[in-house]
Simulated assay, not measured.
Amino acid sequence: MKRPESPLPSEPALDETRAMNRRLCLLAGLSGLTWSASSLLTPVRAGGQLEEPLADSVRSALASAIANSAPPEPVFSNTERRLAYLRWLGAMSDRLQRRKPDFQTRIEFLQTVWYETRRAGLDTTMVMGLIQVESAFRKFAISRVGARGYMQIMPFWSRVIGDGEVGKLFDMRVNLRFGCVILRHYLDRERGDTFMALGRYNGSRGRAEYPNAVYAAARNWIHPDA
């Protein structure tokens, strides 16, 4: 099912977006960063997770999952598993080249996605589809509701289970860690129902548009070794 297009923003909204882009670009220049204007505050077709009360035990478990700083280095039990990973990495790198032309950036991103999805017990192919829908693989994407980065994390999560530093949500590894931990949490709440969990992730639980968009996008990342 094709996801319906979002309405075009009004002129005042475009002017405000351009102004914010200019301010962010200025900040990037002052801090020595090399962000491109197109990657900053580009409108994305994403919703936002809803802040819900969490039991103390759940909050502690999520915070612990976020805080674990183990490096994203996959460990393989045998040579065949490692070769399967390398085949997947090569194929995904080729498919992602148009969106991420820099080889090293592309490989680091894919390695981290592989690691974080397996760490959280998620389907890597589905998460790649989710990232495509949420941010179109743009590291500095910001939605109209303030969700940030690759997996469009709402800032309140940084306060609820992180260290409160919202700016870290633009860090690739931090963003992917938050996104995978949050999606795992929603899957657990929905007893493994990916349709409902994806809707909850998007803040549109029970509606078909978002899950169907993720399922469709995931087809672009199917690979026998995934």
Rank of each mutant, 00 (worst) to 15 (best):
T194H: 13
A28N: 12
A63I: 06
T125H: 04
L24T: 06
I142L: 07
T105L: 13
A120S: 11
R184W: 01
Q132N: 11
E51S: 13
E80C: 10
L62N: 05
V174I: 13
R59K: 14
L54C: 10
I131T: 04
C25Q: 14
R119N: 06
R189W: 07
P53G: 11
R95G: 07
E73P: 08
E16C: 13
A46Y: 00
V133D: 00
D123T: 12
Y215L: 10
I161A: 02
A37L: 11
F109Y: 10
E165V: 14
V133H: 01
T125G: 04
F140E: 12
A61E: 08
A19F: 09
M172H: 00
C180K: 02
I182W: 00
A70W: 03
E165W: 03
M196V: 10
I161Q: 00
T17R: 13
L62Q: 03
N202Y: 06
D193E: 12
F137D: 01
M196K: 15
V133T: 09
T105S: 12
A28I: 04
E73Q: 12
F178H: 08
S135C: 14
N175L: 06
S77P: 07
D123E: 04
T194W: 12
M20P: 09
S10C: 07
V133P: 00
Q49C: 14
F170G: 11
T125V: 12
V214C: 06
Y150K: 00
G129D: 00
T17I: 14
D225I: 02
L26E: 10
L187E: 00
T105A: 15
P53M: 11
S31D: 07
G206Q: 03
E134G: 06
G47E: 01
V181P: 01
V181R: 02
A197Q: 02
A197S: 05
G29L: 07
L26F: 14
A226V: 01
L187K: 03
R207P: 03
N212H: 11
P7L: 13
Y186P: 07
